[in-house]
């Protein structure tokens, strides 16, 4: 069941901080080793969050990766190692291909982080988190999220009602698209009419009368503080190492593996610790339940 896992139960602030940092740092780190860690961590995180269904998403990333990687040498001829030439001498270089693969890995890991993010950061967590900063707009989002399924149901109801008196033409795609559009426009009237009632109901329940507070469904206790601390400390440590040159990598003119210094290993280790944090708590819980259940 969605929403029951340990990652889903993280405080929205912790979850949001983690994903934001993971995505932003993922875009900064150029070293292939760092990128491989990011891809691996995003895959395991998605597996923990979505279970078996994650494999379909992960499989869909393979062609994306290939397109991004293989396309780069077509636009960039930089690099000394020519793999082959085409179009009368245009070079397809190894360095460009690797650089493309590096971008591809970055892109794929970003998509995978977003895939986990979409499951974990549900709309109510999002509006909870931003309710304090942008109270009006986050209320609009909350309301729109109620209205969307409401309007979908209403649209179906209208289609049924019109079919029941023989008004749906049911012709080709063009006809149907036209019918759908005019239903949409008809919906506007009563949607706003209902909106008047909603606005009354809001004002009658003191909307705008005082400074809004947010109902806290989430507790920020010691566990949350600790989790946030782990995430932030390891993230900052890895970033510090990266900025000191641990994650720099030269693709052109030829690929140069920098010496693996202590700084590099420290940076990589803390990067892994940071990114694998959700996987870790997910697996920990899994093991605990297995163990626990096996004794029942």
């Amino acid at each position: 069941m969605l929403g029951s896992g340990p990652i889903e139960r993280l405080h929205p602030a912790v979850a949001f901080a983690f994903f934001a940092l993971a995505i932003v740092f993922g875009m900064c780190m150029c070293h292939p080793a760092f990128q491989i860690v990011s891809v691996a961590a995003s895959v395991t995180c998605l597996l923990v969050v979505r279970g078996k269904r994650a494999w379909r998403v992960i499989a869909a990333m393979v062609p994306v990766f290939l397109v991004v990687a293989l396309a780069n040498p077509l636009f960039s001829t930089m690099g000394d190692t020519v793999l082959f030439t085409y179009f009368g001498g245009r070079a397809y270089t190894w360095e460009s291909l690797v650089f493309g693969a590096s971008t591809g890995a970055m892109f794929v890991s970003m998509l995978l982080w977003f895939a986990s993010y979409s499951v974990v950061m549900t709309s109510d967590k999002f509006t909870y988190l931003f309710g304090g900063v942008i109270p009006g707009l986050s209320l609009v989002v909350t309301m729109a999220l109620r209205l969307v399924p409401n309007y979908q149901r209403k649209a179906t109801e209208m289609v049924t009602a019109r079919a029941g008196v023989g008004l749906m033409s049911g012709g080709g795609v063009r006809e149907r698209a036209k019918d759908a559009l005019s239903l949409l426009s008809a919906m506007v009237s009563w949607a706003l009419e209902d909106g008047v009632v909603t606005a009354d109901s809001m004002r009658s329940r003191a909307y705008g009368a005082a400074r809004r507070t947010s109902f806290a469904r989430y507790c920020f206790g010691r566990y949350e503080a600790f989790s946030l601390g782990v995430v932030v400390v390891f993230a900052l440590l890895s970033m510090a190492c990266a900025l000191s040159g641990a994650a720099s990598f030269e693709f052109y003119p030829t690929i140069a593996w920098p010496d693996s210094s202590l700084l590099f290993w420290l940076g990589l280790a803390s990067y892994a610790a940071f990114l694998l944090f959700p996987t870790f708590i997910g697996v920990k819980e899994l093991v605990r339940w297995r163990f626990f259940l096996s004794r029942i």
Partner: peptide
């Protein structure tokens, strides 16, 4: 707020 929410949902 309501107008924005309604138009956004539509």
């Amino acid at each position: 707020i309501v107008v924005l929410a309604v138009m956004c949902a539509i």
